[in-house]
Design a protein around this nucleic acid. Sequence first.
DNA 1: CATTCGATGATTGTTGACAAATGACAATAG
DNA 2: CTATTGTCATTTGTCAACAATCATCGAATG
Lengths: 199, 199
Amino acid sequence: MKLASNLQEQVASHLRRRILSGQLLPGTPLREQTLALEFGISRGPIRDALLHLTKEGLLVAKPNVGVKVAAEPSGFKRHVIVHLRREIEASAITAWFETRDPHLLRRLDDNLALYREACGGSDLGQVVELDMAFHRLIVETADKGSLVDLWLPIMLRMFLRYSRHRDLMESYHEHASIVRAMHAGREWEALEALKSHIV
Amino acid sequence: MKLASNLQEQVASHLRRRILSGQLLPGTPLREQTLALEFGISRGPIRDALLHLTKEGLLVAKPNVGVKVAAEPSGFKRHVIVHLRREIEASAITAWFETRDPHLLRRLDDNLALYREACGGSDLGQVVELDMAFHRLIVETADKGSLVDLWLPIMLRMFLRYSRHRDLMESYHEHASIVRAMHAGREWEALEALKSHIV
DNA sequence: CATTCGATGATTGTTGACAAATGACAATAG
DNA sequence: CTATTGTCATTTGTCAACAATCATCGAATG
């Protein structure tokens, strides 16, 4: 977990985690003044953070009214999002198989160990964080990480409904399958495992 | 061209147009104070606008340093972007063929007329605007427009290199082909025309 | 009784001043 | 001669006060 030096990023990270872990439910309004009091800072950085999260799709804004936590994507939209995520992450994995840089494999192994541990625990925020970090590691390897800013908003919208319909341990095993196929050098198998993991 | 009531959107629109039309080249730094003087307003709304454009992918920001116009996407990234755009717009067209609402056809026809005219003229900003509006109309019809916020950042990144390698009149005819297929009710043909248009 | 109009309170939008961080360059020590 | 340190100008980051806008609710009106 990285520590940002500027307030707006700290606020954004904090709120992002609270939304993704389900502590802030869709529809919950977020007021600038309230948050400013809560964080003990002025409204400026709060505004910046809310603007960030709005563009990331976690909040929706109405001019002169305020922001609230975004609704979970509809069935149709979610269907499109699934395809987009698959496209991006599959491209990244395909690119990785060109070089098979072992550095990524080491970091994925590390992440897997932490992820398994977190899935057993009760801190859902930690689980979300590690799940996201896993996929981010994959996306970051391709094209010097240039896909991340394209991938992040899509990923975040999907994770808006993280807590539901999800068996954490099964999710861990799916991650493990992907990494196993990469270790073994079987590209097709890795892509299939990825595809069936993203639903 | 819509006129926003709040300053940040006016500034964002203005800068967006200048970037997409090639008046602001990749790498050009944008300073808050300079822009504030230029627009005759304070730095607050400027900050908001720059944050918007950064999240849209048109600018890149470095903390405590500032923002500059984003570089054109690399070959690899562009390849992914093309696939994503195709996926989104194809989904929208497929959804439209479920209802075949004639309202969209009328608006596309209107857009085509203006687009043809603009392609003959010299105002590249106008051409970009109408090209974008064409695709936006398509995306907006599906799922009550919920795909737009997903689609826009992808579209904008692609349009960062709008001016180059492009025959405007050919672009018009490709638009026309798509609309013609939709009028005729030929879904496969429309999807193929769309796919070959987005490259 | 339904509807429109206007006052009111809450909330965002905007501003200008001040604080903090950064990068460039020159002075200095090894 | 190189590397380090200190200073300075520039630019972003933060703050608190003020203005503009919107939603709510109640009263007047048809």
